[in-house]
Design a protein around this nucleic acid. Structure first.
Length: 230
DNA sequence: AATCCATTCAACCGCTGTATT
DNA sequence: CAATACAGCGGTTGAATGGAT
């Protein structure tokens, strides 16, 4: 079932955008700014649904987009971020100025996947393809406060893909521990504090952590409830 | 030149998370 | 607290393009 359609499909254009449509969208956003995508098409005189307008603007028309080929540095950064975050394309895009989630996702599927496979690395697990697959991915992320999630292969030592990173991040299905931790997270939020993803320390909102941070980049201070890095 | 096949990437679809009523 | 509306996300699709035959 799901939700009702976001727009009147019978009266909307689909497929590739024309120059005229692009111009209308750009002109409207320049005049009124982003936001309220649902009402934008009508206001801008476009026969498109709001989602389509948003996507066109975010992925193609935004003036701050870099476009062009990805550099070797960007490639490596994407690989590292993907090994940490998985298919969280919007989070990865947040670390690559001028790049969009859609662009990175496409680039991953067309170039980087193949690049990793040619190196003998599984693009999903970031581990050698001939290594035994495991249902859980555990990444080193400092002194872990949470107990280790038991992976299927007990006692099996995992080889760190990026020895320079000191992370201890466990990716698994939502667990009992997560529910236990949530009240603490909410408490932190109420108190206006967040936790640095790099050093795991609590910080007041708006204060930059002085640690070297994730991947040697200026570290993102994360909201406890999610990996919001924008 | 014509056809086939593989690759790329813009755009769509369905779903989730969050805010509002 | 439930229902609803909306924005945003990730997976998938399909038209366009380029290379091989």
């Amino acid at each position: 079932m799901g939700r009702s359609p976001c727009c009147e499909k019978a009266h909307t254009n689909k497929g590739a955008w024309t120059k005229e449509e692009d111009d209308r969208l750009i002109a409207h956003i320049k005049a009124h700014g982003e936001g309220c995508w649902r009402s934008l098409p009508k206001a801008a005189g476009l026969l498109r649904c709001g989602k389509s307008c948003r996507l066109r603007w975010i992925n193609y028309l935004r003036p701050d987009l870099k476009r062009g080929n990805f550099t070797e540095e960007e490639d490596e950064l994407i690989i590292k971020l993907h090994s940490l975050l998985g298919n969280k394309w919007s989070l990865i895009a947040g670390r690559l100025p001028g790049r969009t989630d859609n662009e990175i996702k496409n680039y991953w599927n067309t170039h980087i996947r193949r690049k990793l496979l040619s190196r003998g690395v599984d693009p999903m697990t970031h581990r050698p393809v001939n290594e035994k697959a495991s249902s859980n991915v555990t990444i080193s992320f400092g002194a872990g406060e949470a107990e280790e999630e038991k992976s299927g292969s007990e006692g099996e030592e995992m080889t760190p893909r990026f020895p320079d990173l000191n992370l201890d991040l466990c990716m698994s299905l939502p667990s009992y521990q997560e529910q236990q931790r949530r009240p603490a997270a909410e408490q932190m939020k109420r108190e206006g504090r967040r936790t640095c993803f790099g050093c795991n320390l609590g910080l007041p909102m708006g204060i930059e952590c002085k640690c070297d941070g994730l991947l040697g980049l200026k570290c993102g201070v994360l909201d406890y409830r999610g990996l919001e890095m924008k």
